[in-house]
Write a protein that binds this DNA or RNA. Structure first.
Lengths: 192, 192, 192, 192
DNA sequence: GATGAATGAGAATTCATTCAT
DNA sequence: TATGAATGAATTCTCATTCAT
């Protein structure tokens, strides 16, 4: 009952409601009902509906990014850091099926203002990827001839697309089993 | 039906209206106005609003996919085919800035049902990518140890993310200049 | 069926709904129902709810003011003009009991923005009163020592208050029977 | 109850909040905040929001009416009594700019039920005016041919309208300077 | 007496779609 | 075919009031 329980209740309810009903069918009243609070209570903790959604993303991505950061800090090479990053990306989303649906499918349907806020949060994650690339450039593991931005686009694009595929296939296979192969594909390419 | 001039007028109007106003501010009446037809006329050519948007995607992606297919058919190696694929992906979207905005940003805001239909169309493009991978496996250019699905996710994810980045940066740089480097990154990876 | 019948239908319905239910209980849907149109139709003719109310006032006061103007134009002396003004003020409101309720009681409950618009319309009526005073000053009927603004406040305040009293007493007596006495009171005062 | 300090705090806070924010933006929570009490505390002293507003009017008008009564009691003629009445009406409102705004503009926006209660309070003031007229009829200063109700409507309507004009012109001129001229206008009329 | 977190009813407006002409 | 006026369902947010502490 401590530490603003209602705030967390509402956040968790929002994730579930969006995952179950889809972004466009997620009325405030539905979220309130699932959180077991009155509609008006929502507005004691959030400015408006958009604020709920941004907060969901911020809270959840915050944890996600922190997890990724901590994991790669433990590793000594860019190669290992990248491996860990892929592993964390897959494992964290695997463990929160609702969150995966929300981030990969539903929240992308939001209108521009909200998307803008979401992109800000996403930026922090891209920064983490950039830091791994930067590290690899320093250690010499990655060739300096490459544009780091393109490398990052490849890494994030690949991870994002593979998770989306997994979500759209109803999360029916084990994402984490792909870690090693994806790591090899990204670092070595697929041509002999 | 699809040969009628009004049908094409409406499709073209829809692309422009969505690119200029964003998905959520693209009312049927706006599309009708830009197409210079009455609101009701729209419904003589399309079942409903969703049908317009799917048709936009189908028509435009059809041309896009045909272009890609024709281009890779001319090449003899998987390596060259992939190079051409990347080049066509970038060049075709570069030449249709409106279309790029619509496919990369706006249409992704549509609700799940529409997204489902869009994914069907997208499937044809993924099939083209798959055919290149298939070809590479047959010629031995690509190692059989890799899961082709993962390779495809990497290729598509990378292309898609790089175009989205370019659109979000207001298309301020030349996408096609990245073709060669992206091709190297995908085929050889970025590790020494 | 000619000359924007829906517009007038809605205006008339609005007057009745406000008079019967009071300003605060006059929902758009109630007005639409009484006008026998769909809720959405209202918005083809009016920008928003406030616009309906302003239009009601403008339309009705327009007629009211025109009536007053035409009546005083026929008279040759300030004395007669004032008499006619009082007569028209009373008779026009007597003939439209709903309108009287709306202008004397309900519309005064509106919020500042709307009140502002209403005051603009009211200003035209005050101008008519001012023109009578002006005329009287020119003919010498009214002593130049008086501040015309104060005279106008006395005339309008008296008429307004007497109509409000009549409305609040449920319009149970004949307002027009007071014309002559009110005219005497205003012009000669009530002291011997 | 009415002697409790919190009661008076809330009344004073209400006047200020309404004058500063307008009737429609005067939430109970705002009044509570300005009165430095909790929202719930309000309901220990007042039945509901309407009760606050009526009490504001009752308390303030009580003082106002008492002032007027005392002033006219000192005078010996109806003429002097009326003069004093006008003077007190103007001076008391001049000295309480907030109160003037609240009574002339904001409280008139309240819904009919509240207006009804306000009118009851106002009735006491009209009684005071009536007593002056009565006195004048007895002394013979006022002609018995006039309907006293109409005289009262003229006096109150004129005073009320002139104060409203002054408030709407942002209280930029001296109301009390008009006392003498208004008195002349009311008693003698403005026709030669 | 005092608090303030929680409640939940209530209403304006948009826009895809229809159908009489 | 083509029109466009009319339809009406659907949802966020505010704020007076309560009541457990």
């Amino acid at each position: 009952m401590k530490d603003k329980p209602k705030y967390k209740q509402i956040i968790e309810a929002a994730v579930e409601v969006i995952a179950e009903n889809g972004y466009h069918a997620s009325q405030v009243s539905k979220i309130a009902k699932k959180a077991k609070v009155a509609d008006g209570t929502i507005y004691l903790y959030f400015k408006n509906k958009e604020d709920i959604l941004i907060s969901v993303f911020r809270e959840k991505m915050g944890t996600f990014i922190d997890g990724a950061k901590r994991a790669i800090d433990d590793e000594q090479t860019a190669n290992d850091k990248l491996f860990k990053l892929i592993e964390m990306h897959y494992s964290q989303l695997s463990e929160s099926p609702y969150l995966a649906i929300v981030t990969q499918l539903e929240l992308r349907q939001s209108k521009s203002e909200l998307r803008h806020e979401i992109n800000k949060v996403l930026k922090s994650y891209l920064d983490v990827i950039d830091s791994v690339i930067e590290f690899g450039l320093e250690t010499g593991e990655i060739d300096k001839k490459f544009n780091p931005q393109l490398i990052r686009q490849m890494i994030f694009g690949t991870l994002d697309e593979s998770v989306t595929t997994w979500v759209m296939k109803s999360q029916r296979y084990q994402l984490v089993e792909q870690v090693e192969e994806m790591h090899t594909l990204l670092t070595k390419g697929f041509f002999k």
